[in-house]
Nucleic acid binder design. Structure first.
Lengths: 201, 201
DNA sequence: AAATGGTTTAACCATATAGTTAAACTAATT
DNA sequence: AATTAGTTTAACTATATGGTTAAACCATTT
């Protein structure tokens, strides 16, 4: 592995845990087993190094947001797919929401700097909703509220893990892990029950 | 107003905006229009001053969490009440979720230090669920998932405001504010529709 | 083996920051 | 008016930290 990659790996670890302000260049150097000056040789400043790591994080977040709406027939399909894919990603990268929220709240400019032009395709989702409403499959609902609801339920348990684990699970690690495993199914059920029109039994 | 109160007010403003690590004692002193040494005269250290402010924040969060379950007849009533009261609080203190999450993520010990013994009364909520399930009013659902769903939908838009405003509302301030106004009604509807058993039309 | 160019280090610099100290100020008390 | 107790300040200290520099190291080429 090249020195550059060793540094990046160390920087990932430290920045993810402590954020930009909480991290020290010396700590990253120690973690990488090298001299502090070498950090500045490879990445001129702390900010430059941080932006490398932060961009990576944002990039890993985007693909699952841009789920192909074309391949999908109904809103239900889209939502199941969205919830499933997003949670799969977060189970692999559980530190992502905390890291991104912390840094974006510190410096809101970071969103535009990196997210750039991308937005949630609210209009397309709205079209799906209207189509399925007309078919009598679902209740009318605001696309914005629906998507914020779904995204909130997906991300919040990761963003606020310590709080939820204490407040709701009495610090029972195992109960919390089981909770996360059930999450995908539970959210999907919860959302679909809320929007679908139920046929008579 | 006493000097102590002037200092606390300045500290509130600075700490809320920038968190413990992002704040400087000098900045708080400037904001209060006093000398930096005076901060240390009134509150021995930065940490002590910060804990005063942070405790206040946590305290203001608790009353709405401890909504009296006794006064309530059905789960539906409880949820409507909970959503409404919580959002009323957050609309008055919109910086609360960001502030608490940021600091708790930096130092998870803070939860136990201050929250102490308090927990969500999951057992009582579970009893309500079972009671209403037996009456045939609602579908069975996990109390933990239900409460995490509700709390997520309430808090997340405040915790991740910059992200949501950009990603979903294309930085339209007005649209976002209207969204927050509608939020209480929308969440309540969304949740109640999901859990209730719908009678035939 | 000498030269070259990229890599790594120890030592250093400048600055920012939490915290301290001793003196000055102020208002109430004797 | 002198004393006293509490309040406020300017000046200072110690340390941490991001960043720089010049020299040493090492592998490859000539």
């Amino acid at each position: 592995m090249t020195t550059e990659e060793i540094i990046l790996q160390a920087a990932r670890k430290v920045f993810r845990e402590k954020g930009l302000e909480g991290s020290r260049m010396q700590e990253i150097a120690d973690e990488a087993g090298i001299n502090k000056a070498l950090l500045h040789y490879y990445f001129r400043s702390k900010d430059k190094l941080f932006m490398k790591i932060f961009s990576e994080a944002i990039q890993s977040m985007l693909p699952s947001v841009r789920i192909s709406l074309q391949e999908v027939e109904t809103l239900n399909q889209f939502l199941s797919f969205f919830v499933h894919e997003y949670l799969k990603l977060l189970n692999e990268l559980p530190w992502l929401p905390r890291f991104i929220l912390q840094e974006v709240n510190r410096n809101p400019k970071l969103i535009k700097d990196i997210m750039g032009n991308r937005e949630l395709p609210i209009n397309e989702i709205d079209r799906l909703i209207r189509r399925d409403t007309e078919k009598g499959l679902i209740m009318p609902i605001s696309a914005e509220h629906l998507m914020v609801n779904v995204i909130s339920m997906i991300i919040f348990p990761f963003a606020a893990r310590p709080v939820i684990q204490t407040l709701i699970f009495k610090d029972d690690e195992h109960a919390y892990k089981q909770f996360l495993i059930d999450r995908s199914e539970q959210i999907t059920q919860f959302v679909l029950r809320s929007i679908s029109i139920q046929s008579k039994p």
